[in-house]
């Protein structure tokens, strides 16, 4: 039976499914799967793309352990991911609760809080860089009005990372708010009405109804937030602080690959990051799968 005859033998519904799936699968294979396999292959080689690769076994992985810059960048990345997920999440949740209660002007408000999400990360970084400028930046000028002395923001190793995190939270919060709002809209109003009849306060309603029923939303944001946080590049690259205080893992990986041409080592770093993210995600799944709430 020829290939065409075989295809004809498949029923129309399956043919449609195949027709839709195959292009996506081919795209995925060429632009994701094969490069991942190839990256795994080169992680065992010394390779700069300018000379023939040489097999080095596990050397690239072993050397990761001795790399103090890598450890530092990992610490920066963990701080970034944890802060943006938890502090950013807390702010977004609070704002979502407030916005959810707004009846008039909700569309205009949505535009305002979502605008930073639509703005280029690099543009945001440059603008915040100017706001943070210690001598002539707007933030210090405002603080001066309240008698607060000059802050170094991105220019100090102590405050650079928190400053970059704050700007990133501002930039990404609109997206998180939208997800929370979608979750809030899915909670039946009758639960709140019943709670009101029982005399529950606003805080009690949030604690006993909203938070438990938003659990799937929290899980989703926790997992995607950590994955995104661990892959941070643009924000920290543009809002860089002194003494590598904001140099994240991906920036170091990028530099190793495209400034130092250490492709093998960079690939090994990528798989280390992959292992970290998979482990964290599994832990998160395990933690959140306990005590599911149904309604």
């Amino acid at each position: 039976m020829s290939l065409i005859e075989r295809i004809k033998a498949i029923d129309a519904k399956k043919r449609f499914v195949l027709a839709v799936l195959v292009p996506a699968m081919v795209f995925f294979a060429f632009f994701s799967f094969i490069p991942i396999i190839y990256a795994f292959f080169i992680s065992f080689h010394e390779l700069d793309f300018l000379n023939p690769p040489s097999f080095v076994g596990l050397d690239n992985y072993m050397r990761l352990g001795d790399d103090t810059h890598l450890f530092n960048s990992l610490v920066v990345t963990v701080k970034f991911a944890v802060s943006t997920v938890f502090i950013g999440g807390l702010f977004a949740f609070s704002f979502a609760l407030l916005i959810n209660s707004v009846k008039r002007g909700a569309a205009a408000l949505r535009t305002v809080y979502f605008l930073p999400v639509m703005t280029s990360l690099v543009a945001v970084g440059v603008i915040w860089g100017w706001l943070y400028q210690p001598r002539f930046g707007l933030l210090n000028e405002v603080l001066k009005l309240f008698g607060i002395g000059r802050q170094m923001w991105l220019s100090s190793p102590a405050t650079a990372l928190p400053s970059a995190i704050a700007a990133s939270i501002w930039q990404g919060m609109g997206f998180t708010i939208v997800i929370f709002l979608a979750g809030l809209h899915g909670i039946p109003q009758s639960y709140y009405e019943a709670a009101e009849v029982d005399g529950a306060s606003s805080l009690q309603k949030v604690w006993n109804i909203t938070i438990p029923l938003l659990r799937p939303t929290f899980v989703y944001l926790l997992i995607t937030g950590f994955i995104g946080g661990f892959q941070v590049f643009d924000q920290l690259y543009v809002m860089s602080g002194p003494l590598n205080s904001t140099r994240g893992f991906i920036e170091l990986l990028y530099t190793r690959a495209f400034s130092y041409y250490q492709m093998g080592r960079a690939a090994a770093m990528a798989f280390l990051l992959f292992a970290i993210i998979v482990t964290l995600t599994l832990i998160q799944f395990r933690l959140v799968s306990r005590g599911k709430v149904e309604h």
């Binding site: 810059h69 220019s155 100090s156 190793p157 002194p242 003494l243 590598n244 140099r247 530099t255 400034s259 130092y260």
Partner: peptide, 18 residues
Amino acid sequence: HEVENDYGLGMLQDLLFF
């Protein structure tokens, strides 16, 4: 690149300033 920037001459300013 690293000696001129990230892990060398480029650090002098930050070290001195802080």
